[in-house]
Amino acid sequence: MLKITNLEKSYTKGAPVLKGLNLTTDERRLTAIIGSSGAGKSTLLRCINRLVKADSGSIELDGTDILSLSGRALQDSRRQIGMIFQAYNLVDRLTVMENVLSGRLGYTGFFRGVFRKFPQEDVDRAYALLKRVGLSQYVNKRCDALSGGERQRVGCARALMQNPRILLADEPTASLDPKTSERIMELIAGITEELDLPVLINLHNVPQATTYADRILGLRHGVMIFDGNPDELTEDWLEQIYAGHEDDLKKQMKVGAAEYDDE
């Protein structure tokens, strides 16, 4: 469904972040991408929905190459790709409902959007999603009044509002405390199972990746060096993926272990 071949991207000349990256989604649903900071995880996801434009290679979603699109066609393909952000990226001064409904903007005409005249089935869907993520009591609350975990739930609802073909999540739990972070992972895993929706999720937290993912990709210096099931991810592989960033790895393994003891 999503097929990435030879993707390259550099922000400054001569310092590529992605170097000929290949990735194909398969029947496994939740794919976690791990790697040290700076490995290119964020850049990869942002290339997929074109928040960042890759330099070369191809990204095919159901056969259309996203890299070659522009204008209306680009918006059409973006609305098929839901995205959940690390910093939630909600519009603070709008209400929860407006933020969730903004997930339909790719389908809604400009003036309907301006005057918040969304079709009835969109409103129904928004209510159902908010109920599912557990926020139906906050419909008309402004987003800047919510806690981090609640905001990320709104972020999930907004992405699902798009009725996406695939969901991207860029470190969705990195700004949250450990407990809330687990809840959000449960939510994402649960919802996507109910919708049978493939997910690409960047994770900083290896224990979370092995717990929730069906497939794990290890990214290092802009290329995939590991691709396998969670049980195939050995200490050895981890050391290779995080080589040079061992402290980083140790710290989160410890945090992860502590969380497990808590449960």
Binding site: L51, Q75, S77, F85, N89, L90, S102, L105, G106, G155
Partner: peptide, 12 residues
């Protein structure tokens, strides 16, 4: 970030 959030939904 808020702009990116809305842009990622495919909004014009």
């Amino acid at each position: 970030g808020q702009v990116e959030g809305v842009r990622s939904t495919g909004a014009g």
